[in-house]
Design a protein around this nucleic acid. Structure first.
Lengths: 228, 228
DNA sequence: CGCCTCGTTGAAAGGAGTCAACTACAGTGG
DNA sequence: CCACTGTAGTTGACTCCTTTCAACGAGGCG
């Protein structure tokens, strides 16, 4: 697994740029390949902005408020691109939820390089906007929804991103723990657990082991999420 | 006040592109000028993504969750650029907090046009990333902070964006109501009021009328915000 | 100057947090 | 293959912060 090969894959997947191109050569030179194991944090420089391509695996981007309260700001899966700022009012750390392959670029060099590849720049803009829209929706959830709505919304989002739908039901294999879910939804692990229990009792979901969830009635779950 | 003139100003302010250029002509053709009055919503199409330049004034971007709970997702001031998605799980509306001048572009046409102006594309990426980082910090606040920390953080952010610092103190003229602040911080108007009172009693701020706030001790307020 | 909206303050209610005990996985080694 | 162990998850009782409901006070515009 070398940098060049993953960079080619990155450009193809994310920007539909052909392999072996000039862009690939240029970006390959500034890229760094990381393969963090499940549960470990990716060693990312904190003093400057970074751009990360998730070639495979699953990650959580965590912000640490003071007093070691942690907030999961976003989950990312294979094919996703993550922008991580230099340390500001909160420090951000990227953790692998499963063994992952990551391609890391210093943002300033990436953008300088992309300047001569407008298609790359445009796709990056598109993806950053998507991330922004997702983050805004998350802000709405955190600001205006109760525990039940938040968990329902979370399960809906996960079923769309990593679920497998078959005859009206959706099977999700959650790569994150209850704690991660709590840290993402601004709730405690106990509240998450209680809400899971209530959704089970209501017959909306079935759980298998720690990570398996089957959504029995996606439409009803969507209603519970309190979206429009 | 015509579209062309504001477009020129937009390109100069936001992207440092010279006036009367080809970019200006192209963008001027797809732009629409709006001048919403204080308290009114800007008429923005909901069925497709939009990009808005705030030439002057102040706005709030509001998401409506079901059950008419509202969440202010971001405040924007003169010089800012706002990306607004087509309706998804939440509907977004842009309100003028003061009489404002806005330049509206359909996002797809804007991006198509920008494709031949990499500098514009890059600056848009930069600004979208900034918006994303701000939104993430907001998510941390909403998910992990109590009322006092949220209001302190809000006042710190506002003093940085629209405050006037003089001999260690910072004067802010807030264009938004207590309700807007509450809707932004995921709190009720009463809680905002109580927290304002406590900050006043602690001698950290002085208020004048409904909108004037002077931060007496910015460093201490920053500490209260619970940032790192 | 008066009206009306916005903001402030108080008392009571509720939802999530905290603390604590218990249970069930999943991975390890025998 | 099974027993063991440690971590992850569940459930209950109680507390606390924010909301809710209500009344009052103040600012700003006509």
């Amino acid at each position: 697994m070398d940098v060049r090969k993953v960079t080619d894959e990155f450009l193809k997947t994310a920007f539909d740029v052909e392999c072996g191109s000039r862009a690939s050569r240029q970006l390959g030179e500034i890229a760094r390949l990381l393969t963090p194991c499940r549960g470990t944090s990716a060693a990312i420089e904190r003093d400057r902005e970074q751009i990360v391509f998730v070639a495979s695996g699953a990650t959580k981007l965590v912000a640490s408020a003071s007093d070691n309260r942690e907030q999961v700001v976003a989950f990312h899966f294979g094919g996703d691109i993550i922008s991580i700022p230099a340390d500001g009012m909160h420090a951000y750390t990227l953790f692998a939820l499963a063994d992952s392959t990551l391609l890391i670029f210093p943002a300033s060099e990436f953008k300088a390089c992309a300047l001569s590849h407008p298609a790359v720049l445009r796709a990056m803009l598109e993806r950053t906007q998507t991330a922004l829209y997702r983050c805004r929706d998350k802000a709405v959830d955190l600001g205006r929804k109760n525990a039940k709505e938040r968990l329902a919304g979370f399960l809906v989002a996960m079923s769309e991103r990593i679920g497998r739908t078959a005859n009206g039901k959706c099977r999700i294999e959650l790569p994150m723990s209850r704690r991660d879910i709590g840290d993402s939804l601004g709730l405690t692990i106990e509240t998450i657990s209680r809400q899971f229990s209530e959704l089970k009792q209501a017959g909306l979901i079935v759980t298998e082991g720690r990570s398996g969830v089957t959504v029995q009635d996606p439409a009803k779950l969507l209603t519970m999420a309190g979206h429009i």
